[in-house]
Amino acid sequence: MSRRPYQREMTSEWIFRHPRYLRYMTREFSCLFIGAWTLMLVCALARLSEGPEAWAAFLEGLKSPEVVVFHVVALAFAVYHSVTWFNLTPKALPLQMGDEFVPDGAISGAHFAAWGVVSLVLLYLAGAF
């Protein structure tokens, strides 16, 4: 009896094998938009350091349909990153109190609540409302 094991090839089509892999890829792709937005933030810092006219031009430059679309898409991905991150936090940081562990939902819930508070405070202090 001769052995001749067969090695099946792994191609990039694995991401389509099940919805969970697509969701994973979506989460990973959020990095492109968060990164791109942060680079835009660096540009904003550049304009801010150049004086009021440069800053005004920057703000004007934001007012275009493409920029709005980018922001909406980036916001969606950023929120997806936040939601997935906070849902996974209890797995990485389990908290034992007494004999039992704090339920995952409580840890995630606390993070979501803190996220809400931080966001509202930030927006309020920035004068968004």
């Binding site: 969970r20 892999y21 994973y24 990973e28 996974l88």
Partner: peptide, 9 residues
């Protein structure tokens, strides 16, 4: 590991 999470699923 990149925390796909499929293993736990």
């Amino acid at each position: 590991c990149s925390f796909v999470g499929a293993c736990s699923d």
